[in-house]
Write a protein that binds this DNA or RNA. Structure first.
Length: 469
RNA sequence: GGCGCCGUGGCGGAGUGGUUACGCAGAGGUCUGCAAAACCUUGUACACCGGUUCGAAUCCGGUCGGUGCCUCCA
């Protein structure tokens, strides 16, 4: 399986470090508000990568994702909403709420959260791990204590023979004096970053003593991922995922922290970065009024899985342009896939042809996914399969296992669609009898009645086909 | 200023040298009690200007436009 690697800037053949299990770490959400559709789209990509690794790559997969449940935004919001609670209690109340909402959204867009190993930055084991790493970095001179916290020294890191800038070459010109002067933090060099932030008034804080200094406070952002990924997966691991905006500084800093004390040159062998979603050609932002959550999509009458189709229709390294019109197109495609899947219940419509195409189509889909997760190509093949099925009928026996595999690959929930009820089947038979006697009024009444129940009918030469409206 | 990405038919979106991508929407037709589906036909797509080549949407150079990172961000 080939994947584009930001570290090498080319397609790399994935070979699990331990020979069998691919270990993935996905940078997860900061849980201070609803996830927006941009966040969710990147998790759909990560979820699809997981699926492809298992089924197209034939690997075992161990997949960890973090929750950033302590940072400026979570703290600010928790104090606004719960001013009377103890700061740590307020923080946890807020983040518990949004973790719940996040997992719910993940499920609604078809991501399988059950197999993800989630970690929280404020987990005592993680806090301890971060403090331990900071102590060891400090002991070796990679970290220094300032008035407002502990910082990582990039200069020391570089002098130790390591490369800072494995993912992104930093230009020298932007290291201006003015920026150092204006920076509110007490750090020695402009790119140095906080490992630990000393407590400010009213902020949640954890006890921490370093080299005799009382540094009660909270972790910096980057150190969370260095520690959580190692705790969940060991190091080095295979794939680190995130969106392009995380390349710098987040992932670069993670690498620095994770490798300063190690012989290994990198924390993960492949950095897998996916592009942003655009809305009407622009970056999503609240000020531009093009900022949407999953609930906004649902409120407009769309199926959350239509959004999944929309995301899979473009390659993960191209920006997806989200428009309501294109979401509708994606939903129409989803509906036609469902109509195809529903044919398995309808022997009358199930022609004998069709099954011959199943195996090559599936092979084609798997090959596309192995090729740098080419979901648009895979989806094209799937759409063609469905078109073929609707034109020529399906093999009502062989389609079920096919649908099961396709569900495991795409997460579009086609395999478990239920049959219509006996009452509805009787109505269809009754209508057919009325049609035979040319009682069009009765036939149309029954069709209207079924339509109210969400069942549409097609009178084809091969027989009557129902579909869900 | 530094480092990137993108510009394809009404809307999305593949495609890295030579044959229809595909999806959605539109138009005409066949079929049909009607409807729906299906099928057939249909739309002179590759930002612009040069260059390389027998041949370029695809390679090279330039122009214009959009966009991302360089500070928190999926």
């Amino acid at each position: 399986m080939k994947l584009y690697n930001t570290l090498t800037r080319k397609l790399d053949e994935l070979k699990p470090l331990d020979g069998r299990t691919v270990r993935i770490y996905s940078c997860g959400p900061t849980v201070y508000d609803h996830a927006h559709i941009g966040n969710l789209s990147r998790y759909i990509v990560a979820d699809t990568l997981h699926r492809a690794l298992q089924l197209a790559g034939n690997f075992d997969v161990l997949h960890a994702m973090n929750y950033t449940d302590v940072d400026d935004k979570t703290i600010r919001r928790s104090r606004e909403l719960y001013p009377d609670l103890d700061p740590r209690e307020a923080l946890q109340t807020l983040t518990d709420t949004y973790i719940q909402i996040f997992t719910n959204d993940m499920t609604r867009v078809g991501n399988d959260v059950a197999r993800l190993h989630f970690l929280r930055a404020t987990d005592p084991k993680v806090i301890w791990g971060m403090q331990d790493l900071i102590k060891r970095l400090h002991k070796q001179g990679f970290a220094y204590i300032a008035d407002d916290g502990v910082y990582f020294s990039i200069e020391t890191y570089r002098k130790s023979g390591k490369t800072y800038g494995q993912l992104l070459e930093l230009g020298a010109s932007n290291t201006s004096e003015a920026r150092i002067q204006n920076d509110e933090y007490d750090k020695e060099s402009v790119h140095d970053f906080a490992l630990w932030k000393a407590q400010k008034d009213g902020e949640p804080a954890w006890d921490f003593t370093l080299d005799g200094h009382n540094l009660k406070g909270r972790p910096g952002w980057h150190i969370e991922c260095s520690v959580m990924s190692r705790q969940a997966l060991g190091q080095p691991f295979d794939i680190h995922t995130g969106a392009v905006d995380l390349i710098f500084p987040h992932h670069e800093n993670e690498i620095a922290q994770s490798t300063a004390l190690e012989h290994d040159p990198c924390m993960a062998q492949i950095f897998f970065h996916s592009e942003h979603i655009l809305v009407d050609g622009k970056k999503m932002s609240k000020s531009a009024h093009n900022f949407y959550t999953l609930q906004d999509i649902i409120d407009k009458g769309f199926d959350p899985l239509a959004f999944r189709v929309k995301v899979l229709q473009s390659h993960y390294r191209s920006p997806v342009n989200f428009t309501w019109e294109s979401l509708e197109a994606a939903q129409n495609l989803l509906f036609s896939l469902r109509a195809w899947a529903d044919l398995k219940h309808q022997k009358a419509a199930a022609g004998q042809s069709g099954s011959a195409a199943y195996k090559p189509a599936l092979q084609h889909i798997l090959a596309a996914l192995r090729d740098d997760l080419n979901t648009p190509e895979a989806l094209r093949e799937l759409a063609q399969l469905a078109n073929d099925g609707e034109a020529n009928g399906v093999d009502s026996e062989k389609i079920q296992p096919l649908l099961s595999v396709l569900d495991r690959l795409f997460g579009l929930q086609l395999a478990s669609r239920p049959n219509i009820t006996h009452e509805q089947k009787d109505l269809i038979a009754e209508r057919e009898a009325a049609r035979q006697t040319k009682d069009w009024t009765k036939a149309d009444n029954i069709r209207d009645k079924l339509a109210v129940a969400g069942i549409g009918l097609r009178d084809t030469p091969g027989g009557i086909i129902w579909y869900r409206l």
